[in-house]
Amino acid sequence: MASDRSLAIDTPKARKRRHRNPNSRWTNTLFVVPFVIVYVLLLIVPLGLGWWLSLQNVDLLAGTSEFIGIKNYLDLVFDPIFRGAVRNTFYFVILTVPVFVVIGLALALVLNRPGRFGAALRAIFFGSSVLSVTIVTLVWKLVLMPGHGLLADVSHAMGIPEYVPLLHEATALPTIAVVTVWWIAGLPMMLFLAALQQIPQELYEAAALDNATRWRTFTKITLPSIWRTVALVAVIEAVFQFQLFGQAQLLTDGGPNNSTRPLVQFIYETGFRQWTFGYSAAAAQVLFAFMLIGVVVQAWLLRKKESA
């Protein structure tokens, strides 16, 4: 009986049903083709053109270009303004990314509770993230304005000398970092909230029965459960903060003494103020390489954590 049943199953008709129709594969491919076309046209092609442009000496006024190889990249190495922009960008990423992770997670832990009050606080903290960079910098200019800003008024009321952080090299970039954290902290908070709400409550109930402390519950249950989200927030914010531009340009325009000029502003100024598009494209490729390295390192750390 068993052999007859196996023979009945293993018929050409049954084998045909088990194997997918080749025509259906082409049909499924057609659904992917529009995305692939858009992806290639909007990402791959511009990336290739930008790389090729970085190897050219472009004279926009004359409408000519000359292939010069890696000369633009060599010039970047010996350009003190470019090196300062790279240093400022990395310093800004180091200042902001850990703070985004810590503050975002702390806000999520505090506001991860039901009720209208918690929902209202979440909306307040997330509300600043939807503002444009122009509005954010305008608000903070009113706070940091020399002589008439909110910070100056508080200093005068307390009888202490006025200090304008944007006018000093040591504090200008950290001040922009504070503005950025105030602006975007709501986004990592929402990501952490979504991760926290996916943790089974039974784990916390079991920890409570074992009389586990809050710190032990956090380190043994909460943090391991949301490790992927921590890595995701770190990667997203690192990529975003490497692209610092609007805050620095609108608040300080790269000053004082180029202490707040980021790499994106350097790319913009060399391309659209000095009209050296090949040089600007080379700097853009360097920025892309930095961002790519950051993503690869974060992915490696995440995989190492999972295999441990």
Rank of each mutant, 00 (worst) to 15 (best):
Leu301His: 09
Gly104Trp: 01
Val286Thr: 09
Ala231Ser: 12
Val32Ile: 06
Arg228Phe: 14
Leu203Ala: 09
Arg113Trp: 05
Ala289Ser: 13
Leu287Arg: 04
Val235Arg: 07
Lys305Cys: 06
Ile176Thr: 01
Glu169Ser: 04
Lys304Ile: 13
Asp79Glu: 05
Gln285His: 12
Leu43His: 14
Gln274Ser: 13
Trp140Phe: 15
Lys16Gly: 04
Ala212Gln: 06
Gly115Thr: 04
Ile44Tyr: 06
Leu109Arg: 09
Ser65Ile: 11
Gly118Ala: 12
Val86Ser: 08
Leu42Tyr: 11
Phe290Gly: 05
Pro80Phe: 07
Leu142Ser: 07
Ala231Val: 12
Thr137Trp: 08
Gln243Tyr: 05
Leu287Pro: 00
Gly118Ile: 03
Arg15Asn: 01
Pro98Cys: 01
Thr229Cys: 04
Thr180Gln: 07
Ile199Met: 01
Gln197Ile: 02
Asn112Leu: 01
Thr134Ile: 11
Ala120Gln: 03
Tyr73Trp: 15
Arg122Met: 02
Val99Met: 10
Phe117Lys: 07
Gln241Lys: 11
Ala283Phe: 10
Trp275Asp: 13
Ala177Val: 00
Val45Ala: 06
Thr270Ala: 14
Leu55Asp: 09
Pro46Gly: 00
Leu232Gly: 05
His19Arg: 14
Val110Ile: 11
Thr213Lys: 04
Gln298Leu: 15
Arg25Lys: 13
Pro200Cys: 05
Arg303His: 12
Met145Gly: 05
